[in-house]
Design a protein around this nucleic acid. Structure first.
Lengths: 237, 237
DNA sequence: GTCTATAAGGAGATAGAC
DNA sequence: GTCTATCTCCTTATAGAC
């Protein structure tokens, strides 16, 4: 870790990224960050103004390039396909690979980036959510459009839901790689990015093909809950 | 909201559940909680000992019954099926419905419970993760076994990954119902629990049937990233 | 640009009266 | 069991010398 080669600003961003990824926004403290970055506390305020400003800079450094890579990969796939609708597999690949690749970089920051993506998705702060929303809206639209072209019979609402499911699954595994590995007793290896990608594409692709309209079944048998300690005056079922 | 009918202890738990769900563990403060619960600060320490103890009580109140409901619903489905392997759809229903139903209760605590489930999954604290692990391990095993019986040709590692994907998608939509509704301009309605359940079962079922072994494709074309600002000395691809 | 020193307040937790 | 008052520490943030 050559400290001399790295400017103070970058050291702070790296340390902050790490801290925010590990402890969340409110859980991370400026003092821990400056300790790890080996800079003075006032330096952070000089460069970033506030803790919020620091988080914003951390997010933009990662999600700006990520957004561009998403869009470029989708466009490259479309170009190489001569303008015809892409297969679901190709779309999913363009959707999942950029974040997985980012997380696969072999560096000290690897785990930090992985967890940061997953962490901030569920971050309570409205300001953080706004930053994320701006970064994601354009990408969301592009992929939704690709899916609509690929699956003209699918209901738009279904596709929207499915994008959320995939995005949720992705952020979850990015945020909890260690837990997954431990819970599976080593059978799942989140660092084998290539295999994770293949597994996700194989698992999610068939579901997207399911374009018949939803038929709501009556499900009377599950109305009864086993315990009485919960309030369930109104049960939707 | 009849305050007199509710013991202090329950008022604290309700307020804490709400606060933790909204702001996360470190983001929520004891002082905000006692303000909402209309109790004295010392009362919380009398009943729960510490902030950690309070969180633990909040989690156990919800996840104990949830665990039981998961197991009972799976067992009921197996019994009604005469011991034969369940369909993937039935297993998914038993897996998804208890948390969705819990979130569908029409009460002031509804949103709190929804978001709490999603929130704590990504909570950094190790102690919280341990509580969650204990609650989830038994349920995980039961559902994994059900899937293995239903899909004898599926690789165990694949099933483990897929359980994580489903769990990740579920916790994501539980934690971010408002965001989903806004991003979709109202087309997705997270409060229509029944439809969400059907949508998830329809989306995830086909993927589980995919039991052919994974064939890793070479993907040279995605090796190139669009921007040079990221370090990518070692790219796994 | 970088530092020391410190402000100003919020946090979790407790002692001890009632 | 419930309250007031307080301890102690840590937090974000800033003022001002160099």
């Amino acid at each position: 870790m050559p400290l001399t080669d790295q400017s103070r600003r970058d050291r702070i961003l790296d340390a902050a990224e790490h801290a925010f990824a590990e402890a969340g926004f409110s859980g991370a403290s400026m003092r821990h960050i400056v300790l790890k970055a080996k800079v003075n506390l006032a330096t952070v305020y000089y460069y970033f103004g506030s803790k919020n400003g620091l988080m914003e800079a951390v997010l933009k450094r990662r999600f700006g390039p990520l957004r561009q890579e998403h869009l470029e990969m989708l466009r490259a796939a479309q170009n190489s396909n001569g303008g015809r609708p892409l297969s679901v597999e190709r779309i999913l690949e363009a959707m999942l690979w950029p974040p997985l690749r980012l997380a696969a970089c072999d560096s000290d920051q690897r785990h930090a980036v992985m967890r940061l993506i997953g962490r901030i998705v569920n971050e309570p702060s409205q300001q953080i959510q706004d930053i994320l929303h701006v970064q994601r809206a354009e990408v969301r639209e592009a992929f939704l459009k690709a899916f609509q072209e690929s699956l003209p019979n699918a209901a738009r609402a279904d596709l929207l839901w499915r994008l959320e499911f995939v995005w949720g699954a992705l952020t979850f595994i990015l945020c909890n790689p260690k837990k997954i590995e431990q819970d599976s007793l080593g059978e799942c290896n989140p660092r084998d990015t290539q295999r994770v990608l293949e597994g996700m594409i194989r698992f999610f692709s068939p579901g997207f093909q399911e374009t018949r309209p939803t038929i709501l079944r009556t499900r009377a048998r599950i109305r009864k809950a086993p315990r009485s300690r919960q309030r369930r005056s109104v049960v939707i079922a």
